[in-house]
C-alpha cells in the first residue's frame, strides 16, 4: 500500500521552481561553514565542530570523512543526512568501481555517483532531498592531479580551486578569492583555510573544535604493513595538536 501512494514530495511550483530543493539549500545555508582549498600538492577540507555544552565529548564527532584512500568528503547542513551519504559513497566506490576495475574511482566518477544519489532523492516518491551540500576532495592517479568538487542537494556539482559552503560561505568565498593563487602550497592552503574559518567562528579557534583533513602525498605509515610497493592512503586527518601548532603560527 505504501508504495502505491508514494508520490514525489519534490514537485514543480507554478513558477517552475522546485521549492523543496530551495528549502534544502536553506538548511545548508544555516549549517556550519566548511572550507575546501585545492592546490598543486594537495587538497584541504576544513570545518568547525560546534558543541553547545562543555559536557559533550566532542572529539568523537567527525565531520570530514574518509571515502576511498585518495578521496575525502565533508559537508554543511544536516549531520545525519551526511552520514547516510558517506555510507552510500563508500559502498558505491566498492560495488560500482573497485570490484569491477580493481582500482578506486577518480574523484569525478565518485562525485557523479554521489550526485546521482542526491538527484534521485529529488525525483523519487515519498522521500525528501538531502539537506546537505558536500565538498569532495581527492587525487586522481591517472592524471596525477588533485580535485575539489561541491555537490548540492539538487544533484548538481561544480569543480573548484577553492570554495566555501554554509552560513558564512559568501564572505568566506570573497576571502578565498583574494588569498588563492596558482602557486599556493599545501601549508599555505591550511593557513588560508584556518583564516577563512576564523571569520565565521564566534569563540576562540582551537584545534579540538576543528575538523581538518588533507589529501596530499601517500602516507605509507597509515598502511599498517611494510615491505611492499603499495602506496599508502593520501587522505589524512590533522590532529588537534597539529592544528593548534598551525594556529599558533598564524
Amino acid at each position: 500500500m505504501a508504495d502505491r501512494y508514494s508520490f514525489s514530495l519534490t514537485t514543480f511550483s507554478p513558477s517552475g521552481k522546485l521549492v523543496q530543493i530551495e528549502y534544502a539549500l536553506n538548511a545548508v545555508k544555516q549549517g556550519v561553514t566548511t572550507i575546501g582549498i585545492k592546490c598543486d600538492n594537495g587538497v584541504v577540507l576544513a570545518t568547525e565542530r560546534k558543541s553547545n555544552s562543555t559536557l559533550i565529548k566532542n572529539d568523537t564527532n567527525t565531520k570530514v570523512e574518509y571515502i576511498t584512500p585518495n578521496i575525502g568528503m565533508t559537508y554543511s547542513g544536516m549531520g545525519p543526512d551526511f552520514r547516510v551519504l558517506v555510507d552510500k559513497a563508500r559502498k558505491l566506490a566498492q560495488t560500482n568501481y573497485k570490484r569491477i576495475y580493481n582500482e578506486y574511482p577518480p574523484v569525478k566518477i565518485m562525485v557523479q555517483e554521489i550526485a546521482k544519489v542526491m538527484q534521485e532523492s529529488t525525483q523519487s516518491g515519498g522521500i525528501r532531498p538531502f539537506g546537505v551540500s558536500l565538498l569532495v576532495g581527492g587525487y586522481d592517479d591517472h592524471n596525477e592531479k588533485f580535485r575539489l568538487y561541491q555537490v548540492d542537494p539538487s544533484g548538481s556539482y561544480f569543480p573548484w580551486k577553492a570554495t566555501a559552503i554554509g552560513k558564512t560561505s559568501n564572505s568566506a568565498k570573497t576571502f578565498l578569492e583574494k588569498r588563492w593563487n596558482e602557486n599556493l602550497q599545501l601549508e599555505d592552503a591550511i593557513h588560508v583555510a584556518l583564516l577563512a574559518l576564523k571569520e565565521s567562528v564566534d569563540g576562540e579557534l582551537i584545534g579540538e573544535n576543528l575538523d581538518i583533513a588533507v589529501i596530499s602525498d601517500p602516507q605509507d605509515q597509515l598502511l599498517g604493513f611494510k615491505g611492499t610497493t603499495i602506496e599508502g592512503p593520501r587522505f589524512r586527518k590533522l590532529t588537534a595538536d597539529e592544528i593548534n601548532d598551525t594556529l599558533d603560527s598564524l
Binding site: I100, E103, I109
Partner: peptide, 18 residues
C-alpha cells in the same frame, strides 16, 4: 564516455576478469 580517456591495459584486464 564516462572517464573521458582510454582504458589502461591493467584496468581492462581486471574488467574482463570481473
Amino acid at each position: 564516455l564516462r572517464e573521458e580517456r582510454d582504458i589502461e591495459p591493467s584496468t581492462l584486464a581486471n574488467l574482463i576478469s570481473s
